[in-house]
Write a protein that binds this DNA or RNA. Structure first.
Length: 376
RNA sequence: GGGGAGAUACCAGAGCGGUCAAAUGGGGCAGACUGUAAAUCUGUUGGCUAAGCCUUCGGAGGUUCGAAUCCUCCUCUCCCCA
């Protein structure tokens, strides 16, 4: 994997760059649609690639390991071959499930024992087997096995958890460097900074992660319920420590304004379920603001979903029709909303990139931050 | 023509003397969602000068301290037999 910075914004830490992988290049800043179970829910790859313009998508180690299972993925020769997505894939390690499945797991120094949310069966994840599983899935970028701490989280626990995540990182690196890719292309490991909302822990973690000298670095444990200001504060501090010549990935973020703000702090990569999940639930993100398409006020609004939208659904369908689909429980509704939201998110990062290249990012960002947060 | 069942809030449908402004579904309205246990979840759904009051359970009367619940008549539905 290679990372080339093309331009830096003169008034912030924002940059435009290119990440090269064996499955093609990724222009940054980039938003990566989340495809947990090997599918970006409700969206065809044809739409993802052509209408939305996705450059890389996510998969999830925990979910793919449970279904379809590693044996199937290996027989398919990896997730790319299995689902047909030929562009880069990043897999999350299951660290988020350590957080979200708190009542179904038990943590030890060795790893985590999970109870499957599907059938209750018990499974063990360790830094080593999580690396092996991600080898089997065959993602281009693979994440270290970490613990995403909750919010709030007391200092003692945050510190203890962070240190364990660091020890696990050492084991991940050792495992990944002693094994080979299964399908003939490179896989790059990204370590993850933790430390909850504590500045000194974040600093310590960023320094530890930076010292690992990985080809890209991630920030985890944020956007779990803490105020946005704290998230920005932590992100800013960590970005100041992580190497500038490597991509920085802020995991699980976020709202349109979260993304713009984080780009200005030096983040290059984002992923979030928000455009897809909230889209399925009837919430649309637009340049003018957010709206709940189920609201009665759209009942007879026959104007396009988003006049300035970049996807065909934006001007092909009207708000009133999309509302009708949601109100009727028609599956096309969530499909259209997902395509729209993902297109909007892609437009947001594409336009950010364009503004960075032209040196106008900061002033543009101010306008957009206000607009996109408005409730319509 | 004979016999039977029933009319409850936007709809369906519980309730069968007080704890009922009335269960439960659906529908309506609104909210939440940030490395996806999510096509999910939550709130609300008679009115008001709102910890209280007023008007509601087909209509009109009655019994009772008290009625959606019991009685009488009326109106209307549905089912079975001719």
């Amino acid at each position: 994997m290679k990372f080339d910075i093309i331009a830096n914004d003169p008034q912030s830490f924002a940059r435009a760059a290119v990440i090269y992988t064996d499955h093609g290049l990724i222009e940054t800043p980039v938003f990566m649609p989340v495809g947990t179970a090997g599918t970006v829910k409700a969206v065809h790859f044809r739409e993802l690639e052509n209408d939305i313009g996705a450059r890389i998508i996510l998969g999830n180690t925990y979910h793919l390991y449970l279904r379809p299972g590693i044996d199937v993925l290996e027989k398919a020769k990896g997730l790319h071959k299995f689902n047909g997505w030929n562009k880069p894939i990043l897999t999350d390690s299951g660290g988020y499930q350590v957080y979200s499945l708190t009542d179904r797991r038990k943590m030890t120094e060795e790893g985590v024992v999970f109870q499957s949310h599907i059938d209750g069966s018990r499974h063990t994840f360790t830094p080593e087997n999580v690396m092996d599983i991600q080898r089997s899935i065959g993602a281009d970028i693979i994440m270290a096995f970490d613990e995403c701490t909750p919010y709030p989280c007391d200092y003692a626990y945050a510190s203890q958890s962070m240190n364990r995540t660091h020890r696990w990182l050492t084991r991940c690196i050792s495992r990944i460097s002693s094994t080979d890719s299964l399908y003939g292309y490179h896989q790059t490991l990204f370590p993850i900074v933790q430390g909850s909302v504590y500045g000194d822990l974040r600093k310590q973690s960023a320094e530890f992660v930076a010292s690992a000298n990985a080809k890209g670095n991630a920030i985890g444990g944020l956007s779990v319920g803490e105020p946005a200001e704290i998230m920005y504060e932590m992100t800013e501090m960590v970005c100041g420590i992580l190497p500038a010549d490597k991509p920085r990935y802020l995991m699980g973020v976020g709202t349109p304004s979260n993304i713009l703000e984080s780009i200005s702090l030096g983040i290059d990569m984002f992923d979030c379920v928000m455009p897809t999940r909230n889209g399925r639930n009837g919430m649309l993100f637009t340049r003018q603001g957010i709206l709940n398409i189920r609201n009665e006020k759209w009942k007879e609004d026959f104007s396009p979903i988003d006049q300035e939208g970049t996807s065909f659904v934006d001007t092909f369908y009207s708000k009133a029709y999309l509302r009708h689909l949601f109100v009727s429980g028609e599956m096309l509704g969530p499909m259209i909303a997902s395509v729209h939201n993902l297109s909007f998110y892609m437009w947001l990062v594409d336009e950010s990139r364009r503004q960075i290249l032209e040196g106008t990012f900061s002033s543009w960002k101010k306008r957009m931050t206000v607009q996109t947060a408005t409730r319509l």
